[in-house]
């Protein structure tokens, strides 16, 4: 059994990360500087932070494509509250509650309408972004300029650093630790897996399946809210369209991280690693002179290849297990 960790997908992602850094470092030596690496992470931390709670949604068998719109909605609510004289930290709390409420809305509609989560959250994606634009229009902040001029303390949230490590990376640490504990060490996390594997069996086992799936959407809303706040601070501007292109990278990170799109399988570590791999790939390719369009081609190809690799390696593992089993049963009888 000692060999098993080697076959884990997270290990492969770690390997991919190291190879990727090595190659970029070889092409442009400046890339390898620790500070360069750390601070370039700021550019994609909002993806990782939204992807972590999304992992729970997808493991439980759902999906939330409104996550990008939740980011924009929370951002504009923060900005509008602040510009109307609310203390900026209170505005942050309001934005967090707005994210939770958006998730609750998604979850309730999915539970009580019994429409597929993809369809419901596609709808709420338009609804939330429309709401954000209306709010931003109502406060005379035009959609693309946004609300700026936030106090320095708030701007430091996304741009400052602590002990030489940028603040967004600290956020990632905290989020990873919290959700790892929640998903892998707490009863709640176990029930999320069980619901994702077989929601009927979960119902027959007395699990509160409604509450469990509802709560994953609330957490996903929280992830969208935190991500939106971080982006607002990072750009020091609150805009309705922040995060409008975040949804696909977020789901890509979760799926590349080894979470099964039909639920039941996945890990926080995988999601975090995958989001970092994709983020550095994007950054590195542009650093060595590719346009962002060209970079997309490379990233798309890499995604398909690695998911294929995962499929085949998974089959190999299963084969190896079967052999083991037949060997040991030969010994038994």
């Amino acid at each position: 059994m000692k060999i098993k960790w080697f076959y884990r997908w997270e290990f492969f992602l770690l390997l991919l990360f190291i190879v990727e850094i090595a190659i970029f470092g070889w092409i442009s030596p400046g890339f390898l500087h620790v500070n360069n690496l750390l601070f370039s992470m700021n550019d994609f931390m909002f993806i990782s932070i939204a992807a972590i709670p999304m992992t729970l949604v997808i493991i439980s068998g759902g999906i939330d494509v409104s996550i990008g719109s939740i980011m924009g909605l929370c951002s504009i609510i923060l900005g509008v509250s602040w510009s109307h004289g609310v203390n900026v930290w209170l505005a942050v709390i309001i934005a967090i509650f707005c994210g939770l409420a958006a998730g609750l809305f998604n979850g309730l509609i999915i539970l009580y309408s019994r429409v597929q989560p993809l369809v419901v959250t596609l709808g709420s994606m338009f609804l939330f972004s429309g709401l954000a634009l209306v709010i931003s229009g109502g406060s005379k902040a035009s959609g693309y300029e946004g609300i700026s001029g936030f106090p320095d303390a708030f701007v430091q949230l996304g741009n400052g650093s602590f002990l030489g490590v940028p603040n967004p990376v600290w956020f990632l640490f905290v989020m990873t630790a919290a959700f790892c504990t929640l998903l892998h060490f707490m009863k709640y996390g176990r029930s999320v897996y069980l619901v994702g594997i077989n929601s009927k069996a979960a119902l027959y086992s007395g699990l509160r399946i409604k509450w469990i799936s509802l709560s994953t959407y609330i957490l996903s809303g929280l992830g969208g809210g935190l991500s939106g706040i971080l982006l607002t601070s990072y750009f020091s501007s609150a805009r309705a369209d922040l995060g409008s292109e975040a949804v696909l990278p977020v789901i890509t990170a979760v799926v590349l991280g080894g979470t099964s799109i039909i639920g039941g399988r996945g890990s926080i570590a995988g999601t975090v690693l995958a989001s970092i791999v994709i983020g550095f790939m994007q950054y590195g390719l542009q650093a060595i002179g590719l346009t962002s369009e060209q970079a997309s081609i490379v990233i798309g190809a890499m995604l398909i290849l690695s998911v294929m690799a995962r499929q085949s390696s998974f089959q190999k593992v299963m084969q190896w297990f079967r052999q083991r089993k037949s060997n040991s049963s030969d010994l038994m009888y």
Binding site: R190, Y193, L194, I197, N198, A201, A202, L203, Y204, G264
Partner: peptide, 13 residues
């Protein structure tokens, strides 16, 4: 299989 077993969960799970 539909209502009893969590197929890909561990036996202890």
């Amino acid at each position: 299989s539909a209502h009893g077993v969590f197929s890909i969960a561990s036996l202890k799970g």
